[in-house]
Design a protein around this nucleic acid. Structure first.
Lengths: 222, 222
DNA sequence: AGCCTTATAATTGTATACAAGTATTCAATT
DNA sequence: AATTGAATACTTGTATACAATTATAAGGCT
């Protein structure tokens, strides 16, 4: 797995992910543009996204293994989507692994990885000050992914990365952007400081707080 | 999700899973028939498995989202496979979620689900006595899946089900089959009794023991 | 009217054909 | 000898054609 240098300039544009059909369909399901229970007829998708059936079928198979679509042989594919319950469940599950990731990261992080994390953390601070919410979304994702890498557990990285895709679309916009950004930054600072101080318990606690708050922020009534 | 009646008669035959190309490739990668790092040329797979390129590409995309294959655009697909480290990591991660599954199952299991679990448990006892290792593999998987269902957490079920696919192929054969089956049965009994008694702590402890032993049993030196 | 049978249409599964991009070969040049 | 460049072969990406299966509709029967 190639580790690429993170460039905040490029971070704001969420173009790369939505380039292929799989990601586009994933986005449209998670944002509710395609409704849960809907039947995905191959021909319809072909017309709607202006592609032929081959890439459509490939995308459907990917959605199937991802659990967003149920494919019945010779019958077709049906959207499963995420219920509010699913989302809450996911946050609960994600929390468990995120905490574990921090613990392992504290134990196993290399000096180079810590430098990268610090660099990203400083970008976070900068764009929090600038209140650039668009860029912050990507930097936040990157910050978490660096922790996954630092845990040196390929399986864990893979699992948490798959959660991130969901999270990215679920996030609701709170009323006060500036305050929201500052609070999230403070939570990330607590995590970063704990990792830098190689304090696993503090890291776990900080991540737990961050996860509980993230879940609360994702709820519609907030 | 349709819950099907478990039939132990059908359980011994591991034919259903390997029916489609995706599962066949998955099996061949996990059993080492296809080696890690190997390039999967579409044409080669076509010839080797006697199918055309369309189903091959679909299978490759599924393997990609599963994390068993890395697909580089316009270049091809490369097998990632599982290292010994990956397997150990997976057991560690699986353990965390299996314990959580038991806790939730204790809280949320319905009477009907408990009946199903008991029925499956009794089949386990029967085939343990008969030392039918082939059938036991599938019954064990089914036993765990019933616990996932009883946790009433679709995400958790999905995650743990994906681990099961790996586990199924990783299991190494210990020296003494009869003793092995008896020990595994005892571990499962402890889990079942705890769930039936609605004792979350006892269930968690029993599952932890089962997971630690499973991991130890999967190691080659055992 | 309700139900079964049968014919037709629509959809999925598979194979193949063409387009676009990538890797390889080999000669020409420095 | 090493390197560059063009031509060729190979591989992936996409579109389309045909086969197999399933859904739909119409007509006949009780």
């Amino acid at each position: 797995m190639a580790i690429y240098k993170f460039s905040p300039e490029q971070a704001g544009t969420n173009q790369p992910l939505s380039s292929n059909l799989f990601s586009r369909l994933q986005t449209d399901i998670l944002t509710g543009k395609i409704r849960s229970g809907e039947k995905l007829t191959e021909q319809k998708i072909c017309e709607q996204y202006s592609v032929s059936r081959t890439p459509v079928r490939e995308a459907l198979r990917q959605l199937e293994t991802d659990g967003l679509v149920e494919s019945i042989p010779n019958r077709g594919a049906y959207v499963i989507g995420l219920s509010q319950q699913d989302i809450e469940d996911m946050y609960q599950l994600r929390k468990i692994y995120e905490i574990q990731a921090v613990r392992w990261a504290v134990e196993r992080i290399t000096d180079e990885e810590l430098d990268q994390l610090e660099e990203t953390f400083e970008f976070m601070e900068f764009y929090t000050m600038k209140c650039d919410k668009e860029k912050m979304l990507n930097i936040n994702t990157h910050f978490h992914q660096l922790i996954y890498s630092a845990s040196h557990n390929r399986m864990l990285s893979h699992m948490l990365a798959s959660y991130q895709i969901y999270i990215k679309h679920i996030r609701t916009t709170p009323k006060n952007d500036d305050e929201y950004l500052r609070i999230v930054f403070d939570e990330h600072r607590a995590i970063f400081n704990a990792i830098k101080a190689r304090d696993a318990e503090a890291g776990a606690r900080a991540m737990e707080v961050h996860m509980d708050n993230s879940k609360a922020r994702s709820l519609p009534q907030k």
